[in-house]
Design a binder for these strands. Structure first.
Lengths: 205, 205
DNA sequence: GTCTATAAATAGATAGAC
DNA sequence: GTCTATCTATTTATAGAC
């Protein structure tokens, strides 16, 4: 009897999680496509295929809805970073993260960060899961950056924080979509080009 | 009598233009601060200090209001480019444009480009003034880029269009505001750092 | 052209039945 | 938890007096 209950509850929870995953997936896509302000809860509900009121049973507000999607992306980033070899040259890992970020963006799955004074910003900053993830990622990348600078592969004259921000900025680099719209290059080529401009610069070497 | 009329009309038109300039100035600032979707017409009216209905006598829609601000920025870019010496090394002029773009952005006067499927996008693409300005700027920069690539100062392996997009992207580079928020560097230092990452890359040279 | 007042549409969010 | 129906606030846009 007890174990039966446990199983039932677990099953229900699995269903719940599956649905919430579907919701977050949709929100993620809409955030990447049009941003937080332009995305409407009606759209989300229609796209998921449930009533708007049902959405609000899962998430208390539009901000929390978006925050859940941001948390998921952050978790994916953390998961990807864990697949990298700590023993690899730091620059290799840094480049791998930049490449991953751009691939996600090109796949239309990178939610654009909220602009300066969005209501989403405050929600995100109060979201422990998101902030913890952000800090963990920043710590890992920061260590790699400093190691690469000491190792002489990354320019040691740049503040490490500037390098870190430059990496983060690949998540919202419009060059990727511009080049994709041009139709002259496939995703792989685009990623390689932007990687080149990012690490090697525009000038001749 | 006739000349008096002419003067009167001209004066009225000057007043009109002055007011519209003030409106556009405000819109420009709001666009830079929060983007098109988050900016409201009420805000604009309140900030300018006139009634909302009066705004609509000047501009037929929110999109046209924003487009006017975008046109003005484009005109400023064109004006700045005209101050540059055609005989200068192309790379110098390219860097000057990049620097100017970032300075405008840091001053909070660079409206963020509308995301992929914004209603503003369509309006802008149908705005001859804006599109003509964009093409003129692109032609000038494009010529400099190709000259710099032939001259061996810009990496000739990169498609010129990719270089052009990379320059345009400085107008919405979040690294600038991130570094500014950090408070560790002044605007001049920030511009120099981002210029360095843009043209020299993150790697050691 | 500027204003007050008001439409008309849409947004985020909730009530309450099932 | 899901739904339909509704609320409340806000938003873009207009009417109409001056």
């Amino acid at each position: 009897m007890k174990s039966s209950n446990v199983v039932k509850v677990s099953f229900k929870q699995q269903m719940l999680k599956a649905r919430e995953d579907a919701i977050i997936e949709t929100v993620n896509q809409l955030l990447a496509e049009k941003g937080f302000e332009a995305m409407t809860v009606d759209e989300v509900a229609a796209s998921v295929g449930i009533a708007k009121a049902s959405l609000y049973k899962h998430f208390p507000s539009k901000e929390d809805l978006a925050a859940a999607a941001m948390v998921r992306v952050m978790q994916r980033a953390q998961a990807f970073i864990k697949t990298l070899q700590p023993a690899s040259p730091p620059l290799d890992n840094i480049r791998a993260v930049a490449r991953w970020t751009m691939e996600v963006k090109l796949a239309g799955q990178m939610p654009s960060l909220p602009s300066q004074n969005s209501s989403l910003r405050a929600t995100l900053m109060g979201n422990t899961e998101y902030m913890d993830g952000l800090m963990e990622v920043s710590d890992t990348l920061g260590a790699w950056i400093e190691a690469a600078q000491k190792g002489g592969t990354l320019n040691p004259k740049l503040p490490a924080i500037a390098v870190l921000y430059t990496l983060y900025a690949r998540a919202c680099d419009p060059v990727l979509e511009f080049l994709k719209m041009g139709g002259q290059h496939d995703d792989t080529q685009i990623v390689e080009m932007v990687l080149s401009t990012c690490f090697d610069g525009l000038n001749t070497r």
